[in-house]
Simulated scan of single mutants.
Amino acid sequence: MRTCAGTFVSRVTTRKRLPLDYSVASLRLVDFLVDGLRRDGVDEARVSGALLGLGAYVGEVLVRRADAQWVDFDAAQQAYFGQPVGVRMPDGRVWNPLGKVRNCFTAGSSQESLRTFYLTLHGRGRRTAA
């Protein structure tokens, strides 16, 4: 997923010059991007690649800023989360950033903000440097 996030960021920042720098503050921009995708009433299947890239980016922010690590979900977790991968926090909790981005797309960031998700996330570690 780290490669997926990196490829997505390279593609999006080159073309649009968006400041996706893996900071917590950049998650507000991700909220804005997801809202932009849903604004035109586009079907989720049509933007699934962008949603995957954004989900990988959100997960990578957790990895870089909250001491999380990417993990493959076991069968029960895959059934519960509907995704093959997620992140494990330092306290052992697992979270589903790919699904969180899809929820944000479905409900809108006013209901499912990705920045708020990070700020209220249980089990995160604290890193001071980028």
Rank of each mutant, 00 (worst) to 15 (best):
117 F>E: 04
58 V>G: 00
17 R>D: 12
6 G>R: 14
69 Q>N: 12
83 Q>H: 14
116 T>Y: 00
63 V>L: 06
120 T>Q: 05
77 Q>T: 15
57 Y>Q: 01
82 G>F: 03
21 D>L: 00
103 N>F: 05
26 S>Q: 12
52 L>V: 14
49 G>F: 15
10 S>H: 09
45 A>K: 15
106 T>Q: 11
99 G>Q: 10
128 T>K: 14
128 T>L: 10
87 V>T: 03
29 L>W: 08
68 A>Q: 10
34 V>S: 00
119 L>V: 15
126 R>C: 05
10 S>G: 15
79 A>P: 10
115 R>K: 09
9 V>K: 06
38 R>A: 04
26 S>E: 10
52 L>R: 15
102 R>A: 05
86 G>R: 04
73 F>H: 06
22 Y>E: 02
72 D>Q: 07
12 V>F: 02
37 L>G: 06
85 V>R: 03
69 Q>H: 15
3 T>Q: 05
123 G>S: 13
27 L>T: 05
20 L>Y: 03
59 G>W: 11
119 L>D: 15
44 E>H: 03
36 G>Q: 08
107 A>P: 00
87 V>N: 01
106 T>G: 01
70 W>Q: 06
78 Q>L: 03
102 R>K: 14
68 A>P: 13
28 R>I: 12
62 L>K: 03
99 G>D: 11
102 R>N: 07
23 S>M: 02
95 W>H: 14
79 A>D: 13
53 G>N: 14
120 T>E: 08
102 R>M: 07
50 A>W: 13
68 A>Y: 12
59 G>A: 01
64 R>T: 00
44 E>P: 07
75 A>Q: 13
115 R>E: 12
121 L>D: 10
75 A>M: 04
87 V>Y: 02
116 T>E: 01
4 C>S: 14
22 Y>K: 00
30 V>R: 00
59 G>C: 05
37 L>Y: 13
106 T>C: 06
88 R>L: 04
6 G>H: 15
109 S>V: 08
93 R>S: 13
38 R>L: 00
7 T>P: 06
66 A>D: 09
94 V>L: 05
85 V>C: 09
126 R>N: 10
52 L>A: 10
33 L>G: 00
23 S>N: 08
23 S>G: 07
43 D>H: 12
128 T>C: 06
20 L>R: 07
43 D>I: 13
111 Q>S: 12
104 C>Q: 04
60 E>P: 01
17 R>E: 11
37 L>E: 10
29 L>R: 13
24 V>D: 01
105 F>M: 05
95 W>Q: 13
3 T>D: 12
36 G>S: 05
120 T>S: 07
45 A>E: 15
81 F>C: 11
34 V>C: 04
95 W>F: 14
104 C>M: 09
95 W>P: 01
64 R>M: 04
45 A>G: 09
119 L>S: 11
10 S>E: 14
50 A>S: 15
28 R>V: 09
5 A>Y: 09
53 G>A: 09
62 L>F: 14
7 T>E: 15
9 V>H: 03
41 G>T: 15
105 F>R: 02
22 Y>F: 07
7 T>R: 11
93 R>P: 06
94 V>N: 02
92 G>A: 03
82 G>M: 05
92 G>C: 07
40 D>E: 13
26 S>W: 01
50 A>G: 11
3 T>Y: 02
89 M>D: 10
47 V>T: 13
76 A>E: 10
65 R>Y: 11
23 S>P: 12
126 R>T: 15
65 R>N: 08
52 L>M: 14
